[in-house]
């Protein structure tokens, strides 16, 4: 069976990839990630004095021989990662329209596909959702490897959304997301107010939720040199408003302002629990994935 967003060659390469969310997680099943709770695993934490309710098999007999007192040996519990991938399917993600180039939406789907593949492969639980002004489509999380086919089917369903409203979707997210879960947002972050986005993401992270924001930009969006004509009517794909201007007047200023926004996101959205990456669709997906994984 052929899927649009799964290339067998790339999938083969991804088998060697290990994705670490960074920090502790709180999964239901044992896994490869360090858990907040202490249990059985290889990673030693501390010694604690024995109390009568403790299991005798955890007593460190070597310490008893030296000290003549009972000490319990404690280890971190290793658990799996519970993650959610949120794909922005608003209208702006369909840029560039009516060309043979890969749209931002398609690129986001590729990213989601391969990320979920890596996560499932390492036994993590993956849930996936598409959103615009609300969460539109949701695929409940699973850690089974076969679940990947479901994800691919889910991604292939083309959905053109409306305008993005992060406020709405954050409220919805809180309904099913728990502490120490791992959320991946793949979006172009086109909103009227950048401050609002930063505020919302910080709010989520303050609940102990790990967030990875993948900001998708198309090369045509930050460099306007591809426009040859001078007098241009810019029609917004998402908001449908029109702006008439002379390209030479705004070209340089636009580029500066665009850089400023990216710098702002980079500065504000790189926190303890929040990680921000700019994904340029000019680069191959695999390249971007390598960058994300290596920098994490």
């Amino acid at each position: 069976m052929n899927f649009k967003y799964a290339d067998s060659y790339i999938l083969q390469l991804l088998n060697n990839f290990i994705f670490e969310p960074g920090g502790v997680v709180d999964g239901k099943h044992p896994g490869k990630h360090r858990s907040f709770s202490i249990g059985r695993s290889l990673e030693f934490v501390q010694h604690r004095e024995y109390t009568p309710t403790d299991d005798l098999k955890y007593i460190d007999w070597k310490v008893y021989a030296r000290r003549d007192r009972f000490f319990i040996k404690q280890y971190y519990q290793e658990t799996n990662l519970e993650s959610w991938i949120f794909i922005d399917c608003s209208r702006s993600m369909w840029f560039p329209e009516n060309t043979k180039e890969v749209t931002k939406y398609e690129y986001a789907n590729y990213l989601a596909s391969y990320l979920s593949y890596i996560l499932l492969k390492q036994g993590d639980t993956v849930g996936i959702a598409k959103f615009d002004n609300k969460i539109k489509y949701l695929l409940e999380k699973s850690s089974k490897e076969k679940f990947y086919y479901k994800i691919l089917q889910f991604l292939e369903e083309e959905t053109v959304g409306q305008q993005t409203k992060f406020v709405n979707i954050i409220d919805e997210i809180f309904k099913f997301v728990k502490k120490r879960m791992f959320l991946i947002f793949i979006s172009d972050l086109i909103v009227n107010n950048e401050l609002e986005i930063v505020r919302l993401f910080k709010k989520i992270s303050s609940y102990g939720i790990n967030i990875l924001i993948l900001h998708i930009i198309h090369p045509k969006e930050y460099d306007l040199n591809w426009i040859q004509e001078n007098k241009i009517i810019f029609e917004d794909i998402e908001y449908l408003n029109q702006i008439t201007t002379e390209i030479y007047e705004i070209k340089n200023l636009y580029q500066k302002e665009f850089k400023k926004i990216l710098e702002y996101y980079k500065k504000e959205l790189n926190d303890k629990n929040v990680h921000y990456f700019v994904i340029n669709t000019k680069l191959p997906v695999l390249e971007n994935l390598r960058l994300i994984i290596s920098q994490k």
Binding site: P96, E221, I227, K231, F234, D236, T244
Partner: peptide, 28 residues
């Protein structure tokens, strides 16, 4: 006459363009 010769482009970051135009309108 020359202003009439415009082309329409579907774009995403129009809010940014609008912001630039508002900021620089008066001077330019």
């Amino acid at each position: 006459l020359f202003s009439k010769k415009t082309i329409k482009i579907k774009f995403t970051y129009t809010s940014l363009i609008e912001k630039i135009l508002i900021q620089n309108f008066s001077k330019n």
